Amino acid sequence: MYDVRRLRLLRELARHGTIAATAEACNLSPSAVSQQLAQLEREVRTQLLVRDGRRVVLTEAARVLVAHTERVLAELEQARAEVAALSTSVRGTVRLSSFPSAAAALAAPAIAACRTSHPDLRVLLDEAEPEESISALRTRGSDLALVYEYNLLPRIRDKGITLQPLLQEPLLVALPPEGDAAAPAGPVSLTDLSTRPWIAPHSDTALRSVLERACQAAGFEPQLDYTSDDYTVIMSLVQAGLGLTLMPRLIAEPLATDVRLCEVSGLQLSRTVSVAVRAGSESEPTITALRAALREAAGGAL
């Protein structure tokens, strides 16, 4: 009989590539991961890992186990969900991870609605970016995650994760106030803004990549004079007339005071916000209740 916890570690190793990265993702020490995988090799009675410098390479036997592990874990999640669904009430604790703008616009009203509709349901919220949230889902550190995907970047692909889109929002160009004579009215073409300086996020590499790709699609390389990790600082720089920026609506609208927000013409730029859960867990009552509340919150967000 193979231990499910060890199979899950092998699956995470296949994803992360190193013992150290797997240990970090699973909140374990590298030595603990190594010991558990060594024990799994003894259970399987065949070699599963070959060291290649700092990385390890999975053998064919290991790859077979990983493929079966995805199906086994999904079946176990479904079994838990069906047993929990036998209860006549929604009760217990459910853990939600969310990136900041969705935490404010979607998670807060959804949690409040759940508190009213399901007083025996406790929702815990952690703030995290999509990659970290997906990792937490896989290792059972959270039960649901609010994640996003930009249409100009690769999409989330994970056999162990199910995504349900909640909303699609446009990316908006933030321009200085109306007093700026160079600021156009209505939707704007990025090509017409090619000579203007731009302001980009520093650590939000996804949004920065979208800004750069969008400008490249419009035929120019953006002149990035300023970067910041604080979106209020970015908006202040725009308001001061020091440059332009590109932001999803959920981020931009709460911060836009005197800043003008315009949609982009001639180029589709969007961000899809989804709720992610582990495959097989969709019918678990606490997850079903929170997903329904998130859908309702999304309906009123834009």
Rank of each mutant, 00 (worst) to 15 (best):
R15E: 12
E129H: 14
T195H: 14
L163C: 03
V83G: 12
A185P: 01
A200H: 03
T205F: 11
A200V: 05
L167Y: 00
A128N: 10
A107H: 02
I161T: 06
D143I: 10
V56R: 15
V4S: 10
A81G: 05
L125K: 09
E253C: 05
E253S: 11
E82C: 08
S236I: 03
P130A: 07
G243C: 07
P177K: 10
G53H: 14
Q47H: 15
D229Y: 09
A67E: 13
Y226D: 12
Q239G: 09
L207G: 05
S142A: 15
A182S: 13
A256E: 00
E131S: 15
T162G: 04
M235A: 06
A183W: 05
A112L: 12
Y2S: 09
T22E: 05
Q223I: 14
L261I: 07
P100C: 07
E282H: 09
I161H: 03
I161P: 03
P248H: 01
D192G: 13
L290E: 04
P165K: 01
Q164H: 12
Q35A: 11
L48I: 02
G160Q: 12
A128K: 05
L58R: 06
L144G: 03
A301C: 11
E212I: 11
L302V: 14
L28A: 13
L167K: 02
L175M: 11
A279G: 02
E41Y: 04
L125P: 03
G219H: 09
P184I: 07
V238L: 02
L137W: 06
T93L: 10
E282G: 06
P254W: 06
E282D: 15
L290P: 02
Q268P: 10
L106D: 01
A214V: 11
S34Y: 00
E12T: 00
S117K: 09
Y226G: 12
L152C: 05
A289M: 01
R295Q: 15
A200F: 07
V238M: 02
R51D: 02
Y148S: 08
P130Q: 06
E212P: 08
E82D: 15
